[in-house]
Amino acid sequence: MSLLTIRDLRVTYGTGTAAVRGVDLTVAAGRKLGVAGESGCGKSTLALALLRLLPPTARLTGEILLDGEDVLTMKWGRLRAVRWAGASIVFQGAMHSLNAVHRIGDQIAEPLLVHRRATPNAARERVGTLLEQVGLPAARASAYPHELSGGQRQRVMIAMALACEPRLIVADEPTTALDVMIQAQVLRLLERLVTEQDISLVMISHDLAVLADTCDRLAVMYAGRVVEEGPARDVYDAARHPYGRALSAAFPRIGDPASRLAPRGLPGDPPDPAALPPGCTFHPRCPVALPTCASQDPPLAPAAPGHRAACVLTTGSPA
């Protein structure tokens, strides 16, 4: 059975704006799923929805089954117990995601004290172990966030996410705020630790190359929906959806000078969630759009073995 199953998840904000419009995804135990897309496509809303962390004005429908239990219908007490112990989050921009007035050791220990009723001594010991796992000396537990570099803070976030040995970690743009050298370092660390400890990972990023490198499967989101989903290398190398192709072409490939010299962007801006175009939401920017695309919105359908795409051009052809 899969560890995480998302069924027809919809998130609507108070004004009627839909940020997520019917997302279906699954993550098997111990596997890694990458979610890619431009800013505003709903991927961070999706991350926060997984633990019901969205503001009260957000209305959620559908199902988010974590280990068979629906997060959306959980009672508050059960939800609090599942938060961090069942699934934890590595937030983007660890500068603001850590509390500036508490020592990092206390912040890492906090979920241990809440969920495991650990004694202060046991918690301190575990914090030391966790810090060493992410390559920081145990003595750094007494440091404040502003005394650490960006990469160190992100590693503290990772140590914190591992504290209660969750089954699932959601990483929301875990490396976006870091410079490239540190990005690679933090990614490798996160990947190694979740693999070693058999934790499932949902990684969210705008960088398809990073996701393809880290994850088993990739989902591409556009305007609040998944438009393509499949094995990571397939989606990256041979995207079926025109948006997936544009996204993967936007990043130069290592070892391919041609792509480096001619990175292709995508004209236009992502659509305004409050005023989505009719038909396929991507058609105004699509280089291969057909006249019918302005009125038909194709569902996610098999495009190749284990690979789904939401495009008339792929669903029309035999898989």
Partner: peptide, 26 residues
């Protein structure tokens, strides 16, 4: 609006702990 409050909520803290321990000191 602080991100660190989302972190505190994600950790499974009760609302009053999020307020007392995280928001108020800041």
């Amino acid at each position: 609006g602080g991100d660190y409050l989302t972190t505190a909520r994600a950790k499974g803290l009760r609302d009053d702990l999020v307020r007392r321990r995280h928001a108020v000191p800041n």
